[in-house]
């Protein structure tokens, strides 16, 4: 781990996770998680089902608090501020940290209204500004050409892959710094998956991305850093190339070579 910490310093850390523990009731779901998430990089989180990777990514924007029996200890610093500080405004955090979910979850509104949802709740009313936000966000999400002629049709008319890109566009519309993606391609077909992967690559120019995936090839293809979770612990965190070609922990090697999980 000491070596991994060293290599992580190359990019500035946007998140710094320190001795973070989380319990669902009696169930100890995350144990002493400690690592830095670099800025403008893609950080992949891999691990078998139930290892706490979804819980971890939901902790980064405090969505985990929607579960009533959750308890936490330790700290997660976002830009050097502890997000679990009672004075920290969760709405402000989530304005800076967007999230894309496992299942596409557009609102039952038009494509246009889906994208402007975020800007509108933050008080932007000017029609021209909103129009340009819609165009910019949909272009960034590589969806503009497919939907530009039907912006005012219901988002449910889109295919699953298009819906997921719409959800990405929706989270881009409030210009966050970080985008959290919780298995964004697990409900999609291979072609849509490829499109989202290409999109992630292009988005890291402007955004820091954390992506949970149970597809190891995907992690290897698109991420710069990879953290391997097992039973709520971070077993290994390193440059993706390093972790996949030369893992330092036997359990990591067993997992990425498919011996379990």
């Amino acid at each position: 781990m000491a070596q991994a910490q060293q290599t992580a310093v190359k990019h500035d850390a946007i998140y710094s996770v320190n001795q973070f523990n989380l319990w669902y009731g009696q169930d100890h779901a995350l144990k002493d998680v400690t690592f830095d998430i670099p800025q403008n990089q893609v950080t992949a989180i891999i691990g078998p089902s139930g290892c706490g990777k979804s819980t971890f990514i939901k902790s980064l924007n405090r969505m985990v608090e929607m579960v009533p029996v959750v308890k936490m200890a330790g700290s997660i610093n976002y830009k050097n501020k502890n997000i679990f500080d009672p004075k920290y405004q969760v709405e402000e955090l989530r304005t800076n940290v967007g999230m894309v979910f496992q299942k596409p979850n557009p609102f039952p509104k038009s494509i246009y209204e889906n994208v402007v949802y975020g800007p509108k709740i933050h008080g932007i009313k000017d029609k021209q500004t909103l129009d340009s936000i819609v165009e910019k966000s949909l272009k960034s999400a590589a969806l503009w050409d497919e939907v530009k002629d039907r912006l005012h049709e219901n988002a449910f008319g889109l295919s699953g892959g298009q819906q997921q890109r719409l959800c990405i566009a929706r989270s881009l519309a409030i210009e966050p710094d970080v985008i959290l993606m919780d298995e964004p391609t697990s409900a999609l077909d291979p072609i849509s998956t490829l499109k989202i992967e290409e999109l992630v690559q292009s988005l890291k120019e402007e955004y820091s991305i954390v992506i949970v995936t149970h597809n190891m090839q995907q992690a290897a293809r698109i991420s710069d850093k990879t953290a391997f979770f097992l039973n709520g612990e971070v077993i290994e965190y390193d440059d993706t190339n390093q972790l996949f070609s030369n893992p330092s922990d036997q359990r990591t090697e067993d997992y990425i070579t498919g011996r379990f999980g």
Partner: peptide, 17 residues
């Protein structure tokens, strides 16, 4: 559905919004 709440909260919306 719960995912509608998640989508809205994840965007920084308040409960009332």
């Amino acid at each position: 559905p719960n995912d509608q709440y998640e989508a809205s909260f994840a965007m920084g919306a308040s409960k009332w919004q």
